[in-house]
Design a protein around this nucleic acid. Structure first.
Ligand SMILES: NC(=O)c1ccc[n+]([C@@H]2O[C@H](COP(=O)([O-])OP(=O)(O)OC[C@H]3O[C@@H](n4cnc5c(N)ncnc54)[C@H](O)[C@@H]3O)[C@@H](O)[C@H]2O)c1
Ligand SMILES: NC(=O)c1ccc[n+]([C@@H]2O[C@H](COP(=O)([O-])OP(=O)(O)OC[C@H]3O[C@@H](n4cnc5c(N)ncnc54)[C@H](O)[C@@H]3O)[C@@H](O)[C@H]2O)c1
Lengths: 214, 214
DNA sequence: TGGGCTATGTTAAAAATTTCACATGATTAG
DNA sequence: CTAATCATGTGAAATTTTTAACATAGCCCA
């Protein structure tokens, strides 16, 4: 999927992920065609926004009709680069790490966790979801061997920077971290933070606002 | 904490949550005072951005010096409405639900999960992390009894809308959902979506971009 | 105690993003 | 085959958000 335009807003990428989510539900429901207006309603955005977002990548609709759901879904996934398998390493096999290793949806969506790493000698060698837990020291070797491109950090926050160091050292260019702390990386490495307290804080703020109004 | 200005950008709220995260690390490290420049560096934002974000709520700094870390943290948390306890109900006591119920950080951050609900007769009555799992049918009654204001959805996606219905019916005004599907709510209800595939998609897109460039 | 320094708070400019409006082209019904 | 209809794709307008610039006010040292 060639990118038509130069810079694509970060917000557009976030929305494309939402469109995929909704489109896959529509596929399950058996909907063949959808207009930007209806899709927009389902995603809680403006219809023009959808058309503009898609225009960054090409023309996917049929004038006077709308979009073929399956086709559009495939096109967006291709644009996002998720029409392939991404091999991932998980660092920190604790409560959350184990839950993620057992979560089948990763594989379903093309993110294959092919390496599990921990620094706790008691955990090394243990098998979780069919994967042997390996010592973090061997990360670099394994990343090369398994062709890993994405790192997932599930260590405690005070260890997140160290885990990051290992991943960067191993040549990883993309990191998803669940540790509630900012991590420092070189310019060429992308980091995405998952922190649901940010969402809870946003909720609290909105709830406080409407309470104060009354 | 009185809001000085009328509308506050959503992006500002997201950043305030990041500032809190970084400030709490600084407190732990024993830093007393920080400038917007250094805080900005730690949060990977522009210094003006921080000052502008704070200006929506008041004046918290000392000219020529910077911000007292503890004081600023308290002020931001107050502005966000997280200087109090929020009572929460969790709906869907499966793998993820149990992990969250056992995650102590919720209580630490003022979000107390005081009710756990499921519709599976085999789960009802079971005890998880000191909470008895209650039938979803009794949600309304329990929400009133326990003064619950926030709902957390951890059901499978195809059940998320039903769970939403119960929560809205019970008078809940804020929902955090982990189910990878959009849910429909009345205007007065706020929803926050936690979906780390959105983050993985964003990573995949960025990684694909730089690969294509080479 | 006063002057130099420094980083805030704020106003103004710049940039980015969203929304509008409509010409265009495909579909479908007559 | 033609006309009416409809929803896309897009350029321009409006809005929002970010960044820059600077005057102001408090600290610190002489
Ligand atoms: N448990 C949850 O529900 C949950 C939810 C959201 C976020 N989180 C966050 O996820 C992270 C993990 O949480 P958890 O509950 O699984 O903690 P945990 O203590 O159960 O697991 C942490 C694991 O990381 C390993 N580890 C520590 N340092 C390491 C290093 N340098 N290299 C490799 N492995 C290392 C530990 O040995 C341990 O196995 C924390 O930052 C937490 O805040 C957890
Ligand atoms: N497991 C993970 O690591 C993980 C990670 C991210 C997101 N998720 C998402 O979180 C959700 C839950 O995942 P899970 O792995 O815990 O699934 P699960 O099947 O283990 O748990 C779902 C629970 O919801 C209950 N439930 C179903 N319908 C209900 C209803 N109407 N009212 C109340 N309870 C109901 C079920 O009885 C079950 O206990 C899913 O949407 C999943 O996609 C899971």
């Amino acid at each position: 999927m060639p990118v038509k335009s130069e810079h694509i807003p970060r917000a557009t990428i976030k929305r494309l992920a939402v469109y995929v989510q909704v489109l896959e539900n529509l596929i399950r429901e058996g909907t063949d065609v959808i207009s930007s207006e209806l899709l927009a309603k389902a995603c809680a955005v403006n219809p023009s926004q959808i058309r503009k977002d898609l225009a960054y990548f090409g023309e996917f609709g049929v004038r006077g009709l709308g979009y073929y759901v399956k086709e559009l879904n495939t096109s967006i996934k291709s644009a996002l680069g998720v029409d392939r398998v991404w091999r991932c390493a998980l660092v920190g096999v604790g409560n959350l790490g184990k839950a993620l290793l057992n979560h089948h949806e990763f594989k379903l969506r093309g993110f294959h966790i092919v390496g599990a790493f921990d620094c706790d000698p008691f955990k090394i060698g243990e098998e979780v979801s069919g994967l042997e837990v390996v010592c973090t020291r061997r990360l670099k070797e394994k990343v090369a061997e398994l062709g890993i491109e994405v790192g997932i950090i599930t260590t405690p926050p005070e260890r997140a920077q160290r885990a990051t160091g290992h991943l960067v050292e191993a040549g990883i260019k993309g990191i998803l971290t669940f540790a509630p702390t900012r991590i420092a990386v070189p310019d060429h490495v992308f980091v995405e933070y998952v922190d649901f307290f940010h969402h809870l804080y946003a909720l609290a703020f909105n709830l406080t606002l409407i309470e104060d109004e009354q």
